[in-house]
Simulated scan of single mutants.
Amino acid sequence: MRIGYDAKRAFHNKTGLGNYSRSLIDGMCRFYSENHYFLFNSKPSVLYKAEGLHVQEVLPSKGLAKKFSSLWRTFTLNSLAHQYNLDIYHGLSHELPFGSKKGKTKWVLTVHDLIFIRYPHYFKPIDRSIYTYKIKKACRKADKIVAISEQTKRDLMEFLGIAAQKIEVVYQSCHPQFSQTVDEEEKRAVQKKYQLPTTYLLQVGTIETRKNLLLTIRALDRIPTNIHLVVIGKETAYLQLIQHEIAKRNLQKRVLLLHSVPFDDLPAIYQMAHIFIYPSRFEGFGIPIIEALHSGIPVIAARGSCLEEAGGPNSRYVDPDDVEGMGSAINDINTNNVLRSTMIKEGNEYVQRFNPKNLAEDLFNLYKSI
Rank of each mutant, 00 (worst) to 15 (best):
K253Q: 15
L92C: 03
H94L: 06
D221H: 06
A147L: 03
A65L: 11
E57D: 15
G311S: 03
R118L: 05
L47S: 07
F276T: 04
L86N: 04
A81P: 05
F40T: 00
P44N: 07
A164G: 09
E361C: 08
S79W: 12
A329C: 12
K192W: 01
L114D: 07
E95M: 08
D322K: 01
S79L: 10
A50W: 12
Q180I: 14
C174A: 13
S45D: 15
F285A: 06
A138P: 10
E235G: 08
L258W: 00
Y131S: 04
S315D: 09
G63F: 10
Y350E: 13
N334S: 13
A360Q: 05
D264C: 00
N13P: 04
D321Q: 14
Y317C: 07
S61W: 05
R254P: 07
P262R: 01
Q165F: 05
A147N: 07
V338L: 15
D264E: 15
L160F: 14
T110K: 02
T152L: 12
C139L: 10
I135E: 15
Y32M: 11
Y20T: 03
K137W: 10
V169Y: 07
D127K: 01
D183R: 01
V351H: 09
N19Y: 00
E349T: 11
P320H: 08
R22Q: 09
K253A: 15
V108L: 09
L307N: 08
V169P: 13
L266C: 08
K187Y: 01
K134G: 00
G205W: 02
V204I: 14
E349A: 13
Y32C: 10
I277Y: 02
N348W: 03
R140W: 00
G347V: 07
S100D: 08
A329E: 11
N331K: 13
L24M: 15
D265S: 03
K144C: 11
W72F: 12
Y119R: 06
F123H: 08
D183M: 02
L257D: 12
E150D: 13
G16L: 02
M1G: 14
N337R: 14
E245P: 10
I145D: 15
L363P: 03
L239I: 08
S295N: 11
G233M: 05
C139I: 14
K101W: 02
T181N: 05
Q180L: 12
C306M: 06
I344P: 13
P313T: 09
